[in-house]
């Protein structure tokens, strides 16, 4: 570092020379430059004066008791809020779980019921959508089902397994599942569909095209 650079560097770090926080190497460099530079020595003295003025300045006497009580009140409020939010979240999640279970159970019971009640004894007979005549052979159909409260996929899956149905895909971004169901013999597709739509908690049900 040449003399000019030393001078600039010294001027730059003088405040921290004055407050005594320079590391040993930098401090030695500054001391060496100060020994040969009147201008920097004068500036150092002025900064010492400034530091003295600042240290002697304004006695700040805040009310720590008031401040502490106030902050503790905030902390307690924040903790109460957190507890009530956690409580609410817990209650909502339990409510959703119960609703889902009830819905899945309802769906399961309905599908099992329709399979049993609609069973004409011919085992694999199905009805077509265009025929309301019992006994007319039908086929497995794909149905889109959406729910008022999102139902956990595992719960729905379990209900469908129980009824011999399958999840084809879903849920999509609207929470709608595509499931494959067997329309039991003795029930038209329309009746079957209306019954599915009538289950509490089912928001939307339609046969897939």
């Amino acid at each position: 570092m040449n003399r000019k650079k030393h001078h600039e560097h010294t001027l730059e770090v003088l405040p921290w020379f004055v407050n005594d926080t320079l590391d040993r190497k930098e401090r030695e460099q500054v001391l060496k430059h100060l020994a040969q530079c009147d201008g920097c020595r004068e500036e150092r003295d002025r900064l010492i004066e400034l530091q003295k003025m600042i240290r002697e300045g304004e006695v700040v006497d805040g009310d720590v008791e008031f401040s502490f009580r106030r902050t503790m009140k905030r902390i307690e409020e924040a903790e109460r809020n957190r507890e009530s939010v956690a409580d609410l979240r817990d209650r909502n999640s339990k409510r959703r779980l119960f609703a889902s279970l009830a819905l899945a159970a309802g769906l399961g019971v309905f599908l099992v019921g329709t399979l049993l009640v609609g069973d004409t004894g011919q085992g694999t007979e199905f009805q077509t959508l265009t025929s309301d005549q019992p006994g007319v052979p039908g086929s497995a159909r794909q149905m889109a089902i959406g729910f008022v409260d999102p139902i956990p996929a595992t719960t729905l899956r379990q209900a469908l397994i129980e009824t011999g149905s399958n999840i084809v895909s879903g849920p999509d971004e609207n929470g709608v599942y595509l499931v494959e169901v067997e329309v039991p013999g003795g029930l038209s597709h329309e009746v079957f569909l209306r019954r599915i739509q009538g289950i509490e908690g089912v928001k939307h049900a339609a046969f897939a095209q």
């Binding site: 600039e8 500036e43 002025r46 004066e49 400034l50 003025m53």
Partner: peptide, 23 residues
């Protein structure tokens, strides 16, 4: 700025322009 405002610090107190350029 303080050097230009405070008499105790005024006399030749401001760091030189060359330092400013470097910064």
């Amino acid at each position: 700025r303080l050097a230009s405002l405070l008499p105790a610090l005024a006399k030749g107190a401001a760091p030189s322009d060359s330092v400013e350029v470097e910064h």
